[in-house]
Every structure is written in structure tokens, then in C-alpha cells.
Nucleic acid binder design. Structure first.
Lengths: 202, 202
DNA sequence: TAGATTGTTAATCGATTAACAATC
DNA sequence: TAGATTGTTAATCGATTAACAATC
């Protein structure tokens, strides 16, 4: 019920709960055990998480599916449309631009920027970086996605910060320096795979 | 020094240490404080991590860069070539196939599979799924990368498991069921961004 | 020597798990 | 009522941080 200040560990599990309960599961009510099994988690953990987010479970019954979906969506602010821009339209940038999974969580990538002005397959135009700041300000952009090469990442991050974004999703293999009030999430694919590999080989 | 059984929390930071010390930093010796500052971590944490991995720091001096690089590379098994295959050559699959950051950690994506047989820009051939099992067995493939749609993911995972891969890197937004001895790492991009968004908006 | 820097032990913090009480 | 399932409190576990000892 206490929707603010959920621990990050809990927050990280909520999208999976929502996806399962909303799209994969059919019943009118759902128990923590069913969710736990589907997602390979502990059922006490699921129950504790849902307690924080919903608190509307009933003994012997479980959670009313529609109610739980609503509570999860509230906690994830799904109905708040979050506008994003993407800078760096290489292969990875394109993959994110064509990704149709973001809408499920209320996320839209509404602008793409690159020094090369191409037109995407779906007709969207890639804009020059000079227009980034103005675009962000006029379109209420909250998040910048950085898919440029490592050398350009800090410069792009600086531009995004001064354009007023509140968070940066960084795919460049480098640590960005930003003010404290801007949240950065690094998504280093090579490093993720490297860690998996060392576990697998071990 | 105790290279086996590093905690995952530590292991996750090692690639960043290696990348910084090997490619971004120039000096012959390096201190934990310098690394910590560059990566926005605590310096005690860096020192503890390096102690587990190298244990060759010297008071007043720091770590000999070349030695530290070697120890980090050993811990990450960089010199062990790890062969990967990728199944599902959509936009995201292509982005990973064209990613040139994997080699840094000894990782190679040596085969790509899809029901559509296309030729990649660099001349590589995409193979039909029927050849997956035989390819994995004959090429000593350790890791399978799953970039197919959600509906196909479990089937592909089953095929990869029976083909003998030791780990699966899953980009489909679903929890895969695999035997205990196979390690799965989920990389759900939409869910990652959703969590960042709720933090940013908050 | 003095000071910088590592290494280690203890304290803190947070997350997970276990045990069990509450309740429909 | 009995049993299933949630909610809560306490215990455990692991990771981080702080304090300080060791040493070049």
C-alpha cells in the first residue's frame, strides 16, 4: 500500500509480476504460490512484495487478479506516459527504436537523434543532435537513452542533462558523470554476458 | 586470490574494473581511490573486491597495473574463448550480432539461427533452426542467446539445453524453465526501462 | 620518519527466509 | 470446522561500510 519508496529489489520484480498476472494468467484470483512458481521465485518473497504494493490479498482466496493488476500498474506508474529520446541510431539504437515492448509500461521513445540523418523503416525521421535540447524541452522528455559509442557518451549525457531529462539509460561501456538529481542506469551488454560466461564455464 | 566462488555482487563489478584499468587508465600503478572515483564506487569496496581477485596491492604504491589486469582477466576467464550462438535474428538479434564489444571478454557469437535465412551485412549466413543442435555440439557452444519472440522462447531454450549449452542469455520477456545445471540470465529491456522510469518520475 | 595506501576485523545495513499467527 | 492462504514478526544471511592495524 505504501507506494512511495519501495526498495529497488522489490521494484525490480514488479514488472514481471505485472506481465505474468496481466498477460499470462487467466484466473479471476491468483495466489502467491502460483506467481512464485511461474517466475521461479520464493512464495514468501512474492507475498511480501505484493503486500507492499497491494495489501489486498485474502486468506484462502489469494489476490483478485484485476485488483492486483491495478495496484501493480499504480506502483509502476504505467498510466503516466513517460517520453524518451534515443541518441545514437546504430544497430542497437535501431533495435530499441523498433522494440514494441515499451508501451506495456507506458514508455514511448518519441525522438531519435544521430549525426547521420536517415529515415527509419517505419517512416520516423532521425533528427540531428543540434535539435536535441529543444526537442526535449518542448516534448516533456523524462529519459534519455544513450546508444552512441563510448567516446561520445559523456558529451551526449551532458546535453541530455542540460536539456532537463531526469534519467539516462546508458548502453555505452563507460561511467557517466551527471548531477546527483539525475539517475543513471548502465546497461552494459558485453559485461553482462561476460559475467554469465564466467559462471557458465566455472 | 581465491578465484573460485567469488560472490556475484563482486563478479558483476570486475568487468568495469578491467575495462577501466586496461583501456581508460594510463599509469604503471593504480590506487583503489582512482578506480573508485572513475566508476563512482566506494574505495573500500574497490579495495575489498581487488583483494579477493588479486591480493597484490602494496601500501603507498597501489596495484601494479599490468599485474592487476592479468588477475582481473584470470578471474573473468577472458583467455578462455567462449562460443555463443544466437537464435532469433530480429532487430535486437542483429544488434547483438554486430556488437563488437564481446571480444574484449573472450566471447564470440559464432552462429546465428532464424527461420528466415538471410545473409548479414558482413557476409555471415543465418542458419535454419534445424541445424542448431548439431552446430552447438560440433562447435563447443557454451552459451545460447535467445532473441526470439516470447511465444517461441521456451521451445528455443529447450533446444539449446538439449544441445548442451551451459547458460542461456534470455531477452524474451518470459521466465524460462530449464534444468538446475543450466544458468539463465534474463535481460528484459522493457522492464529495465520501466523501473528506471518509475524512479525518474518519482 | 611520516604519510599514503592496502588489508582486515567489526559494525551496520538491507534483503531474504523461516516460523507462525490471523483469517476467510 | 478444517484447511488454505495471507500477513507479520523474528532469524538468518550476505553485502556494504566504518574503523583501524599493517606496511612500504
Amino acid at each position: 500500500m505504501n507506494n512511495e519508496n519501495l526498495p529497488l529489489s522489490v521494484l525490480n520484480r514488479l514488472p514481471a509480476y505485472l506481465h505474468f498476472v496481466k498477460y499470462m494468467y487467466g484466473g479471476a484470483t491468483v495466489s502467491s504460490a502460483v506467481i512464485a512458481k511461474a517466475l521461479s521465485l520464493g512464495e514468501v518473497q512474492v507475498r511480501k512484495d505484493l503486500q507492499m504494493v497491494s495489501g489486498a490479498g485474502r486468506p484462502k482466496v489469494g489476490y483478485v487478479t484485476a485488483e492486483l493488476v491495478r495496484h501493480l500498474e499504480e506502483s509502476l506508474a504505467v498510466s503516466t506516459k513517460v517520453n524518451c529520446v534515443l541518441v545514437g541510431v546504430g544497430h542497437l539504437g535501431k533495435a530499441l527504436l523498433y522494440n514494441d515492448g515499451f508501451e506495456e509500461y507506458g514508455l514511448s521513445v518519441i525522438g531519435a537523434f544521430d549525426t547521420k540523418q536517415i529515415t527509419l523503416h517505419d517512416g520516423r525521421e532521425v533528427l540531428p543532435p543540434e535539435q536535441l535540447a529543444e526537442f526535449c524541452k518542448s516534448h516533456d522528455v523524462a529519459i534519455g537513452i544513450v546508444t552512441v559509442p563510448e567516446q561520445a557518451a559523456q558529451t551526449v549525457a551532458d546535453e541530455l542533462v542540460s536539456a532537463g531529462v531526469m534519467a539516462i539509460w546508458n548502453f555505452a561501456p563507460t561511467t557517466l558523470k551527471v548531477p546527483d538529481n539525475v539517475k543513471v542506469k548502465n546497461e552494459n551488454l558485453a559485461q553482462s554476458l561476460a559475467v554469465l560466461a564466467v559462471q557458465a564455464v566455472k
